[in-house]
Amino acid sequence: MADPTKRSEENGKEPTSSDDANLSARLKSLDARIDKASAQRSKTTESTARSKSDSNALGQAFRLSAEFVSGVVAGGIVGWLVDRLFGISPWGLIVCIILGFCAGMLNLLRAAGMLKGARYDEKR
């Protein structure tokens, strides 16, 4: 049986000191590249790590979607009530849903800060 502690190449020769030196040089080179890659990886993972701003952005997205949807739903409910009270079946619902859409867009723009809120113009 072959001795497992002795290493030999495929052609049956025993390793020489130059082979060991080459192997050591390659190992050192590989170690240096691994260290460099892990340092770069730690920099990129720190910069892409989840921060508090991600949760703030998610909360802002839910708030903006709720502002819009609530306007449309409120318009639909008011339109349905107008249809039931006055018997003008589809028209009350259609008009109020359109008005609800417009109100939802206005609320969305105000909540996003793209549109200033209504101000009182004090002229004396």
Rank of each mutant, 00 (worst) to 15 (best):
S42G: 05
K43G: 05
K43R: 12
T45Q: 14
E46Y: 07
T48W: 07
A49M: 09
A49T: 10
S51K: 10
K52F: 07
S53E: 14
D54H: 14
D54Q: 13
S55N: 14
S55P: 00
N56E: 13
A57K: 13
L58Y: 08
G59M: 10
G59I: 05
G59L: 10
Q60K: 14
Q60P: 04
R63M: 10
L64G: 08
L64Y: 08
S65D: 07
A66V: 08
A66H: 05
A66C: 05
E67Y: 13
E67S: 14
E67H: 09
F68L: 15
F68H: 12
V69D: 02
V69P: 01
S70I: 07
S70P: 02
G71F: 11
G71C: 08
V72K: 00
V73N: 00
V73S: 00
A74F: 02
G75K: 02
G76L: 03
G76V: 01
I77K: 00
I77T: 03
I77L: 04
V78N: 00
V78P: 01
V78T: 14
G79N: 03
G79F: 01
W80H: 07
L81D: 09
L81W: 05
V82D: 02
D83W: 03
D83S: 05
R84P: 00
R84G: 00
L85P: 00
L85W: 09
F86V: 14
F86Q: 02
I88F: 15
S89M: 11
S89W: 09
P90L: 09
P90C: 06
P90I: 10
W91H: 10
G92N: 02
L93G: 05
L93E: 04
L93T: 15
L93Y: 10
L93V: 05
I94T: 06
I94S: 06
C96G: 04
C96N: 08
I98E: 05
L99I: 15
L99D: 00
G100C: 08
G100S: 03
F101C: 13
F101R: 03
C102K: 09
C102F: 13
A103L: 12
G104N: 06
G104W: 02
M105T: 11
N107K: 08
